[in-house]
């Protein structure tokens, strides 16, 4: 299956501890058998976790999201996670990461964009 499989991205600076955490989160989620692509973006306060679900498991997408939320709550209680399986959010996360690496976003702009993506995830209409 086509995988993008991006490295976890980080908005602020190059804090080594943060990077390790993001990688660990990514590995935790990737280990789940129903999931095949994970992107993690860390902001100042929130961490965006986006993943793709294998098609046959999509009927249980809501349950999978609940399970992942519970697992992240248990393993990393101090962090604030936003979890999504939505394709658009995935595309936006990859775009955000690419722009951050190309230096076309400053730190402040990247944080704003991250907040926008999190808002987009919550939209219902």
């Amino acid at each position: 299956m086509q995988q993008v499989n991006p490295e976890p991205a980080q908005v602020e600076g190059n804090n080594k501890k943060d990077k390790k955490l993001a990688l660990k989160v990514k590995r935790d989620i990737q280990s789940l058998p129903q999931i095949y692509d994970v992107a993690v973006v860390r902001g100042k306060k929130d961490t965006l976790v986006v993943y793709k679900v294998k098609h046959m498991h999509r009927m249980r997408m809501k349950q999978i999201e609940k399970d992942i939320n519970k697992m992240l709550e248990k393993n990393y209680p101090k962090e604030n996670f936003t979890v999504s399986s939505d394709f658009k959010i995935f595309i936006e996360a990859i775009e955000l990461k690419d722009k951050m690496e190309n230096q076309s976003y400053s730190e402040k702009e990247a944080e704003e964009k991250l907040q926008k993506v999190i808002e987009l995830k919550k939209a219902m209409t």
Binding site: D86, F87, K88, I91, M124
Partner: peptide, 14 residues
């Protein structure tokens, strides 16, 4: 609509 506009999987139905 998902690729070229600001719609998510949830909202693209409209």
């Amino acid at each position: 609509y998902i690729y070229y506009f600001d719609f998510t999987e949830q909202t693209a139905g409209n």
